Simulated scan of single mutants.
Amino acid sequence: MARVAEIDTMLVDKARSFIPRLRERGAETDNIRRIPEATIEELKEAGLFKILRPHMYGGFQSNMRTYTDCIVEISQGCGSTGWIVALCAIRELMVAESFSEKTHQEIFGENEDVVFAGVYEPRKCIAKRVEGGYMIEEGFWMFCSGSLHASWGYFGMPVMDEKGKLIDQCLMTVPFNQMEIMDDWHTMGLRGTGSNSVKMNNVFIPDHRVVSFSQALNGNFASQHLRDVPLYNTALFPSLILSLGLPGLGLVKAALEFFQDKLPGRKAAHIGVEYVRDAASTHLMIAEASLKIDSASMHYYRVADDLDDWAQRGTYMDKPTRVRALADIGYANQMCKEALDLLMLASGSGFVYEGNPLQRIFRDFWTLYSHRSLSPNITKENYGRVLSGLESNALRY
Score class of each variant (00 low, 15 high):
R33I: 10
R53W: 03
G82K: 03
L93K: 13
E37P: 08
L148K: 15
W141V: 03
P122T: 01
D113V: 06
E42F: 03
A96C: 11
A117F: 01
P122D: 09
G79T: 03
C70W: 01
A89G: 07
I71S: 05
D69W: 07
E101V: 13
N111F: 10
F143A: 10
R123W: 05
S62W: 04
Q61R: 08
T103E: 09
I35S: 02
L87D: 06
L48W: 06
M94Q: 10
S98V: 07
V95Q: 06
S62I: 00
E101L: 12
S62H: 06
S62L: 05
W152Q: 05
E73P: 03
V130M: 12
C88M: 11
F99T: 10
I32Q: 15
F49E: 00
E101G: 13
L87V: 06
E110D: 13
E106T: 14
H149P: 02
Y67F: 13
A117R: 01
A86K: 03
G109M: 05
K124Q: 14
C78V: 00
I126P: 02
R91S: 13
E92W: 08
I136A: 03
A46M: 04
W141A: 00
K102M: 09
G59T: 02
V85C: 12
S98R: 04
I84H: 11
V130Y: 04
V95Y: 04
P122H: 00
G153W: 05
F140W: 12
T103F: 02
T103C: 13
